[in-house]
Simulated assay, not measured.
Amino acid sequence: MDHMRQSRFSDPGRHHERLAALPADPAAIGAVVRNLTVHYVGSGIDFPPERLADIDLRWVSRMLDRDHERFGGAPLDAPRPVEERLVGCCRDAALLTVAALRAHRIPARTRVGFADYLIPDFHVDHVITEYHDGARWIAMDPGLDLADVPLGPSGLRTAAQCWRAFRRGEIDPSAYGVAPGHPIGGPWMLLQYLLHELAHRRGDELLLWDLFGEGVPFADREWTEMPADLPADLAWLDEIADLLLAADAGDAGAERKLAARYAEDARLHPADTVFCVSPRGARYEVDLG
Rank of each mutant, 00 (worst) to 15 (best):
A115V: 06
M226W: 05
R58S: 13
H182P: 01
L118A: 10
W59L: 12
E83R: 06
L52S: 02
F71R: 05
F212I: 00
T158R: 14
L190C: 01
E214S: 08
A219W: 04
R66F: 07
R157D: 09
V277M: 07
H196W: 04
A271T: 05
A199I: 00
D172T: 01
M226D: 03
R256S: 07
W163D: 11
R70A: 04
A147Y: 03
A103V: 02
H132Y: 15
Y40Q: 04
A103K: 06
H39M: 10
A263D: 14
C162W: 00
F47W: 08
R91S: 11
D56E: 15
I119M: 06
E83G: 01
R261Q: 14
H196L: 15
L191N: 01
G152A: 10
R14M: 08
D133S: 05
H182K: 04
D287L: 08
H126G: 03
W209S: 08
C162P: 00
P79D: 14
E214D: 11
G215V: 05
E83H: 08
R280L: 06
V127W: 10
P23Y: 15
A24L: 08
H269M: 06
V216W: 02
C90S: 15
Q192L: 07
L52Y: 05
A235K: 11
W137L: 00
A260W: 09
V87I: 11
A20P: 00
A53C: 02
R62T: 06
P153W: 14
T129E: 08
F122D: 03
L234P: 05
R167G: 08
G134H: 09
L207W: 01
V41E: 13
D54S: 08
E17F: 07
D204H: 15
T37R: 05
D25Y: 06
A99M: 12
T224P: 00
D272K: 07
D210A: 04
A147V: 08
A20Q: 11
A282D: 14
L234W: 13
A259L: 07
R5L: 13
I171M: 01
C276N: 14
D25H: 07
V124W: 02
G213T: 07
D25Q: 05
P180A: 11
D125Q: 07
D204W: 13
H132M: 12
R80N: 06
P183S: 10
V277T: 13
L146G: 04
T224Q: 15
A252C: 06
V33I: 15
E285L: 02
E69S: 04
Y117H: 14
P75I: 15
P173M: 03
M1K: 09
M140G: 09
G250V: 09
E285S: 05
A139I: 01
Y284E: 14
R102Y: 12
D265E: 15
V82S: 03
A266D: 13
G177E: 06
A78T: 13
H39C: 12
S43R: 05
G203N: 12
V274D: 12
A27N: 02
Y284C: 04
G213K: 01
F114L: 08
G134D: 13
L191F: 09
I138P: 03
L243D: 00
L207M: 14
S7A: 07
D242R: 11
L245S: 09
V178A: 06
E214K: 03
M4C: 14
A259V: 01
P180H: 08
Q161K: 02
G134A: 11
